[in-house]
Computed example of a mutant assay.
Amino acid sequence: MLMLTHTYILQNVLSVAGINNYDKDIFIYNIVPDLLTIHPDINSQQTHKITRPLPISPLYPKAAYIMFHLLVDDLAHYGLISPVIPDEFNPDSLGYSYIKGKPLIRSILDFQKKASQEISYNEAAYRSHLIVEMIYDLVIIDRLISSKTIELLTEAVRAAYEKGIDEFVATINWLYGLDKADIREVMKRAHSYMTAEKILKTMTIEDRIRLYAFKFGLPNDDQLKIDGIKKLFLQAKELLDDNELFLRQTSDAVKKYGWLPPII
């Protein structure tokens, strides 16, 4: 799932638990596995391949919020919390994103064939789950706005960069072993581009189509291809009529797993 969905889920888990007194920057830790990949030398395989559960050092308690992100991703991708990331890709995964994306697979294959860029079934399955995740936070946009989730995330970025940067760098260095200068560079970039105004500009289907086209080497200036991608996204949107179910099931599963916010 994308950053705002992760933020909204944590926001609700804390609210249901009656936890209202916390450092603002915990929400930036919660998106670390995705945030770190804005650095050209850091990829999602590095940031997500951490054994679950991982004992959290009392010196770095906010690492627990990074683990929360990974637990949510496990549920979205595999349908369960997995001790390790499977080495082999499974197009029939029971994760929410893949189950919801399954009806898109044939549409994606047909689209790619018409575009004279045919892909495998497995690749289409992978792309289907991405489309689901890229449209999901647009589907719940009203809830994100009413819950002030965007403001919460931007405040977290400012808090981490302006007040908690040393703690952030030390925590990420402990968890991932990344170079401290690289971690600081990530936060510098995040502080620059993760403003409420800039985030809101990304919350359109047109922006998601542009990102999808860029990621998979499809021309943004070919209107026929752009229209084809839009049809895929609109189809995905129709498949998410039970989006609240994922939020509830994820919160329940994480609680059952035993994740608790650290006492700081």
Rank of each mutant, 00 (worst) to 15 (best):
T51F: 14
E151N: 14
K256R: 12
G101E: 01
E88T: 13
F216A: 06
L260T: 07
I50L: 14
N90Y: 03
K225M: 15
D179E: 10
L94D: 12
R52W: 11
E185R: 10
K225T: 13
D227P: 01
P61N: 08
D227L: 10
L247R: 05
P33R: 03
D74N: 09
V132C: 11
D110T: 13
F233E: 05
R143I: 05
P219T: 07
R52P: 09
K198W: 08
A253R: 02
I264Y: 13
N173H: 15
I26N: 00
A253S: 10
L247V: 12
V132L: 10
S44P: 11
I172M: 10
P219D: 07
K100R: 13
H39P: 03
F216W: 13
I135Q: 04
E155M: 07
R158M: 07
Q46T: 11
H77I: 12
S120V: 08
L200T: 13
N122I: 06
A160V: 07
K100F: 07
I165W: 00
K148F: 12
L218E: 06
L59Y: 13
I183N: 05
I226D: 00
V157S: 01
T154S: 02
A156G: 01
T250I: 05
T171H: 03
K24R: 14
S146D: 09
A213I: 04
L152W: 01
G258A: 03
A124D: 04
I172W: 03
D41Q: 15
Y161E: 09
I229L: 06
L94G: 09
T154Q: 01
L4M: 07
H77K: 08
Y96K: 02
L71K: 06
T204C: 02
L175K: 01
G228Y: 02
F216Q: 06
L239C: 09
D92N: 14
S147H: 09
T204P: 00
Y257I: 01
I28H: 09
H39F: 07
L240F: 03
S97N: 11
D221V: 09
